[in-house]
Nucleic acid binder design. Structure first.
Length: 669
DNA sequence: TGAGTTGAGGTTTTT
DNA sequence: CCTCAACTCA
């Protein structure tokens, strides 16, 4: 039985409260994960079977971390526990009931790229240009309006949307997914929710299986996730939610802070525990954080405190413009690192917008500092990865029209747009999918002989590997063989600018295939279809890069949950944070404030906030004022360096002999 | 099919 | 101003 000695009083209370609804308000750096893992270990120690516990997170990374840490405490007992993201939980339910949803066993998950492609086609087929209606906007509207109860959506009341257009797109979209035997991200939540509503018996089965439920980052749940959890927990009411309303920064994506704020109202008799002792930051940093967030209204009040010493005072550095700001930060890091003997991975530069990354990349490269920009292009978004995945998805699910369209002419087989269109007509006549309809293409006179040849070649190729895959115990061998026969490298040679590029793309595919091999070694019954679904729900893990000693540059959003000894918050000017588009509403403003709070609370030992006095925007130099959030930090907590640029940058230069000499010659100190 | 041209739009993005 | 993606012509 695990001892809870290592927890503080509140943490312990949280860990010991096993039955009934429990709300754990965990401020930044208060040992949330520790508390959760001890709580689970404690439950297991109390005889609760691991298989009755469901823990839900938002990211796969968080899920993995939770498993690893519980495992450290209780060993392999954790293997029977269900730890998954909301979406992978949904996937699991769908997999276990796929027939009810009218799906075939080998169904595919469509990601955002696939969705956009479908909407574009839908718009084209109703002759609406996607200039006026951005597919992403339409998808957002659709996603917001969808109800679990039915596939019908009423667009008539929505501003800025042509109801007829939206309706047309939605119907075609639905049809396309159905025809492709595919589900989208929303379906992963909707379908289980619908099932739970309609089939009470099935719901009961899940309720009895998962008698104890734990939800991490509860402040980020949207209404589907809320209802999903609710229906599961309704019976036994052993629901523990953990989160921090002050760190809710995904409202714009549908997350509802209300879910956490109203938890006690949703679950009568809920116990609330506040974790307020912060183990992360110095008191100087914490005081700044507290003073910033204090101004938000309607919070669950928390006052973070620490036993740590004040440490270094928080600095605010002002630079003439954004390039100088980057230069300033990087110089400061270089000299600080020299003085401190720290590693580059101890530093992080946080920004509001991805576009800011450019200035930092430029300066970091010039100074030859190893860095990694977190976010950006995802591994699975790379063309070569999407291409091979397209092939694999088609192998597994020949109905997958999106994948078919993606790879049918990759590498080029002389199949143009027109031919595909005609194939579509041909397929529609026989009421079949595109891929299937190739089998009797001979009779069709509309399609050019050349294209027919291409289609057939493609068909034979795919069929060959489909057969092989059916009998293969380990798919990775088949995948390798197929990849080799594709001669993708040739295609890359013509489309890439440099040999370097070709090499790196081929290496990407290699590591992708290695991933399949790894998966095979891990699972008892490796199936390619399951692997493909898994990775659709998986985003790239940048941790590795950071562990390689690299300095991290990232948006504040992607920094949530992370911590660094030395943090630089860049672009802390009015219009950036709070962002100009958010200042129009109170809701927007509170979220911006929370965002700033999240940024500040990432720092362990030293926090530096910077802003440029001017910034290039749309070709014009715009004057900038410091962020209004800085006004809320009491004097004395923030040390201003109005002319930091010249000073710190030249300090750094003196470190190099050459610069020193130059300075002497110029007569500057 | 690919390079070049044009034109709009320019916040954040866990799955 | 700069980027991305759709369109255009060889």
């Amino acid at each position: 039985m695990v001892s809870l000695n290592k927890l503080n009083k509140q943490q312990r209370k949280a860990a010991e409260t096993i039955d009934g609804p429990l709300l754990v308000l965990s401020g930044a750096g208060t040992g949330k994960t520790r508390t959760i893992t001890y709580r689970i270990a404690h439950m297991l120690g109390n005889g609760i079977p691991a298989k009755n516990i469901l823990a839900v997170t938002f990211t796969n990374k968080a899920a993995r971390e939770m498993v690893a840490r519980v495992k450290k405490l209780v060993g392999p007992a954790v293997n029977d526990m269900q730890v998954s993201t909301f979406h992978s939980f949904g996937l699991r339910v769908i997999r276990e009931n796929y027939k009810i949803f009218g799906l075939k066993r080998n169904f595919t998950i469509y990601d955002a790229n696939d969705q956009v492609a479908i909407v574009k086609k839908a718009l084209r087929s109703i002759s609406v240009s996607w200039k006026k209606y951005k597919p992403e906007d339409l998808l957002y509207t659709i996603s917001k309006l969808r109800k679990p109860d039915s596939d019908k959506i009423d667009f008539s009341e929505i501003d800025g949307v042509d109801a007829a257009v939206a309706q047309g797109v939605w119907e075609r979209y639905r049809r396309a997914l159905r025809a492709s035997n595919a589900v989208d991200f929303d379906d992963l939540l909707f379908l289980p929710l619908r099932l739970f509503k309609k089939e009470k018996k099935i719901l009961k089965k899940y309720q009895n299986k998962y008698k104890y439920i734990l939800v991490d980052e509860y402040q980020d749940t949207n209404s589907n996730q809320f209802w999903l959890i609710h229906s599961l927990a309704e019976k036994h009411k052993n629901l523990c939610v953990v989160g921090d309303d002050d760190q809710s920064i995904y409202g714009w994506r549908g997350a509802e802070v209300r879910n956490i704020l109203d938890f006690e109202r949703h679950f009568k008799g809920a116990v609330t525990v506040r974790l307020e002792e912060n183990y992360r930051s110095t008191s100087s940093i914490l005081n700044v954080a507290n003073s910033v967030i204090l101004k938000n209204e309607g919070r669950k009040e928390k006052k973070l405190w620490t036993r740590k010493k004040p440490g270094e005072v928080v600095r605010a550095l002002v630079a003439p413009d954004e390039m100088a700001e980057a230069e300033l930060i990087v110089s400061d890091i270089i000299s600080h690192r020299k003085r401190n003997g720290s590693k580059y991975c101890d530093y992080a530069i946080l920004m509001r917008m991805n576009t800011q990354a450019r200035q930092f990349e430029e300066v970091l490269r010039r100074h030859k500092i190893p860095y990694v920009v977190i976010g950006g292009m995802q591994f699975y978004d790379r063309k070569e990865i999407r291409d091979i995945m397209g092939y694999l998805k088609l192998l597994v699910n020949p109905n997958d029209e999106e994948s078919f369209l993606r790879v049918v002419n990759v590498p080029p087989r002389g199949i143009g747009e027109k031919s595909i269109e005609r194939l579509g007509e041909h397929a529609a006549k026989g009421d079949r999918g595109l891929y299937e309809s190739i089998s009797d293409l001979e009779k069709n006179s509309e399609i050019s002989e050349n294209a027919k040849k291409g289609f057939l070649e493609f068909f034979i190729f795919v069929e060959k590997y489909r057969k092989k895959l059916e009998t293969a115990v380990k798919p990775s061998g088949v995948v390798r063989e197929m990849w080799k026969e594709l001669e993708y490298e040739k295609e890359l040679m013509t489309s890439s600018k440099t040999l370097e590029d070709v090499k790196s793309r081929m290496a990407n595919v290699e590591s992708f295939i290695d991933g399949i091999t790894y998966f095979e070694d891990q699972s008892k019954k490796p199936s390619l279809e399951e692997y493909l679904r898994q990775i659709t729900l998986e985003t790239e893990d940048d941790d590795e890069e950071m562990q390689k000693g690299k300095l991290a540059v990232m948006t504040i959003h992607s920094s949530k949950g992370l911590e660094f000894p030395y943090v630089y918050v860049a672009g802390a000017e009015q219009g950036m944070i709070p962002h100009i588009k958010s200042v129009v509403s109170d809701i927007g403003m509170s979220e911006e404030r929370r965002l700033f709070y999240v940024a500040v609370t990432r720092a362990q030992k030293m926090l530096t906030i910077t802003y440029p006095k001017a910034r290039m925007k749309y070709g014009k130099l715009e004057e900038k004022k410091p962020s209004e959030f800085l006004d809320d930090i009491p004097e004395g907590l923030l040390e201003w360096h109005e002319n930091a640029y010249g000073k710190i940058v030249s300090e750094e230069e003196t470190a190099s002999n050459f610069a020193e000499l130059k300075n002497m010659l110029a007569g500057i100190d």
